[in-house]
Design a binder for these strands. Sequence first.
DNA 1: TAAAAATTTAATTATTTAAATATATAGTAT
DNA 2: ATACTATATATTTAAATAATTAAATTTTTA
Lengths: 134, 134
Amino acid sequence: MINIFKALGDSHRLNILKLLTCQEMGACEIIQAIGLSQPAIAHHLKILKQAGLINSEKEGKIVFYTLNKDGIREFYKQLDCFLDELSCFSCSLPKPSQLRQNPNLCTEMGFDPEVCEKMIDEEKIIIKRRGGKQ
Amino acid sequence: MINIFKALGDSHRLNILKLLTCQEMGACEIIQAIGLSQPAIAHHLKILKQAGLINSEKEGKIVFYTLNKDGIREFYKQLDCFLDELSCFSCSLPKPSQLRQNPNLCTEMGFDPEVCEKMIDEEKIIIKRRGGKQ
DNA sequence: TAAAAATTTAATTATTTAAATATATAGTAT
DNA sequence: ATACTATATATTTAAATAATTAAATTTTTA
């Protein structure tokens, strides 16, 4: 999922995705529309492809690109699930930090990081909410 | 929206968000949990704050951080809207490129970029679909 | 040949990071 | 009160790393 965020964190790449709304485009068309050099566009297309956001189909000399709607929807589901893990869809208030009770906690004991890291490490994303609009 | 994608495109920052699930944390706790230097954490917290993904509240010496659930849900809505603009939730097939009819189109006329850029420039995002789970 | 696209290379630019410094707050001793 | 000390966080600076890009090269296809 992080590679998708990285792929989406660039305006040129977002513009390429917008270009592909409702239409397929040859790479040379995309080059003209975006206004970067051919190798730069090829690079961005590669990143979008690897992130699963676009499809490519070679037809003779030309490579045609389209949105990978399934891939994008899958990302949307994963994000939905991730936000659910953060309990962003619940109204529960955050538990107050222990530092509220004892402001010197940080100094006294160097806060065992393991406790926190345990919940971080595993990125087990299970699709459990809403199946997409369709 | 692009700044949110950039903010989310870093594993340390994603881990900070996960840490803040269900609990507020002081900056010193976050430093211990993530295991980066204090200035590095301060930098990441700033990026998350500017992206509207977290809140901060200063209480004496300590700054407490929590998830900005409203901000995150707002991002989710914007993303939903963006994907809708890409017609990711419809089943329509992409229109074939003009290059299919005339493979030399790219060479013949250098493809006027204006046509494509017109639809790119304006990023007018209107919340029109689903209001979030809640 | 020639055109379309990918890859490699090198230069530029942006991001990430730690070290050093600065600011703010709280406590303690004048 | 005022100064001194320590702690928590932010900011600045500089170094390392990663991302972006154009120029040159290569591959593929007509």
